[in-house]
């Protein structure tokens, strides 16, 4: 089980890093935001993994005394974080639209070269 646990965490870390890499290595402004959302979604998985208990069920109270519930707190935190994430994406995308109107492109290097010439 130990190995599975690490496997779970490690894959999540790989996913995070793919997202992070997309943010910092790609020039396209939309692609960066896609990367950001992958990055964040993967962090959410890390949190949810923490709250998991083997043999547990969703934290909705049921009849019976010997039911094991998974930890609800990470779920609550992540609900908030998801909302924050989409809010960021929305503002980011509006910026991208405006940048496209102002520069005619959403590629970072082209934007830079335009401003350098100013």
């Amino acid at each position: 089980m130990r190995l599975l646990g690490l496997y779970n965490y490690w894959v999540v870390i790989v996913l995070m890093m793919v997202g992070f890499y997309t943010i910092i290595a790609r020039d396209n402004l939309v692609k960066k935001l896609i990367g950001l959302s992958i990055f964040q979604t993967s962090v959410f998985m890390l949190y949810i993994s923490m709250g998991r208990i083997h043999g547990g069920t969703a934290p909705i109270l049921m009849e019976g005394t010997d039911v094991v519930y998974s930890n609800p707190l990470p779920h609550v935190l992540i609900l908030t974080a998801i909302v924050v994430g989409v809010a960021t994406t929305a503002v980011g995308l509006s910026l991208v639209i405006r940048i496209n109107e102002a520069y005619g492109t959403v590629e970072e290097d082209e934007i830079h070269s335009q401003d350098e010439s100013l």
């Binding site: 992070f20 943010i23 910092i24 402004l29 960066k32 935001l33 950001l36 990055f39 964040q40 962090v43 890390l46 949190y47 923490m50 990470p74 974080a81 960021t88 503002v91 980011g92 910026l95 991208v96 405006r98 940048i99 102002a102 520069y103 934007i111 401003d115």
Partner: peptide, 24 residues
Amino acid sequence: ALTSAYQYLVMGSVGATFIVIGIG
């Protein structure tokens, strides 16, 4: 102003996500 706000948004969000990882 638009590009700088975008840059701030990306770097700021990365920073915030790092903070979230740390908190987690």
